[in-house]
């Protein structure tokens, strides 16, 4: 896995070494060839999430799905006019959409807003397992990528190039066309950030593991964690909205304070 990411990361990577076949196959090959304790650890971590999926979970998930999702997505998740097919969206997609409260949809609108999650983590995982059992898709990421111990510099650079134009450099969010928006990233769990990148929910583009490797995603998460843990050294950040909020602050509070002082100065003493 290390090797895979470093290959993606450096410009000197030799072409043709990577099979054009499916992602999963490549990751397994990578793990087998690299070996080592770290890789072993990560493979067990990955194995844990996969082995944790049991037949009973899939069945529970199916029941929950039939009760809560089937109206729009169809009884077999084949999709209806109201909602897309869920074949191949993977466990990551379900875990993201349900885990952030975006699904089930509360009302029709330009896009599904995040809101308090309707299901417990256990129920969410069950539904994810069910949907994943229908057709292969992106899996819920393993813990190792969510630690925030990657390269913050590269993460920040990748974030600026791939994410900042919609989500703003400080992750404060931004506007899209026709009433849609890129949400703020503050307070979003790392696992959901990762899943969003892999699955491309709603209008967000997909950043699969071949265009941005899992290691690089971990770097991005590292940067976001850094932002979360280190409030602005300059003081209150005024929402990180840039010059507009600064300008409003300067006018309303700055100049407002100045005008208040001028009134005090010019007022006759009692």
């Amino acid at each position: 896995m290390r090797q895979l990411s470093s290959k993606n990361r450096t410009a000197s990577a030799r072409p043709g070494r990577r099979s054009p076949l499916a992602t999963v196959a490549l990751i397994i090959v990578g793990l087998m060839t690299t070996g080592g304790a770290y890789a072993m650890f990560s493979s067990t971590a990955a194995a844990e999430t996969t082995t944790a999926v049991t037949q009973s979970m899939v069945e529970d998930g199916q029941k929950l799905f039939a009760a809560n999702c089937a109206t729009c997505h169809g009884l077999d998740a084949e999709g209806t006019k109201a909602g897309p097919s869920l074949y191949g969206v993977g466990a990551a997609s379900v875990h993201f959409q349900v885990g952030t409260g975006r699904m089930p949809l509360a009302a029709n609108g330009p896009q599904a807003p995040d809101k308090p999650a309707q299901f417990t983590e256990e129920q969410t995982l069950a539904m994810a397992a069910y949907v994943a059992s229908l057709a292969p898709g992106p899996d819920i990421p393993s813990e190792e990528y969510l630690q925030g111990d990657g390269d913050a510099t590269l993460g920040a650079e990748l974030f600026r190039i791939n994410c900042a134009m919609c989500h703003n450099v400080a992750g404060a969010g931004g506007a899209l066309t026709e009433g849609k928006y890129a949400p703020s990233l503050s307070g979003v769990e790392s696992v959901h950030v990762y899943e969003a990148m892999v699955t491309g929910p709603q209008n967000m583009p997909v950043f699969n593991d071949l265009t941005i490797s899992p290691e690089e995603k971990a770097d991005i998460i590292t940067y976001l964690k850094y932002l979360e843990e280190n409030p602005s050294p300059g003081g209150f950040d005024l929402g990180n909205l840039g010059p507009v909020s600064e300008g409003l602050f300067a006018w309303i509070f700055g100049l407002g304070a100045m005008v208040a002082v001028t009134i005090w100065i010019a007022a006759k003493a009692s």
Partner: peptide, 8 residues
């Protein structure tokens, strides 16, 4: 800012 569903 690419929107993958509307292709805007």
């Amino acid at each position: 800012l690419y929107e993958q569903q509307t292709h805007h």
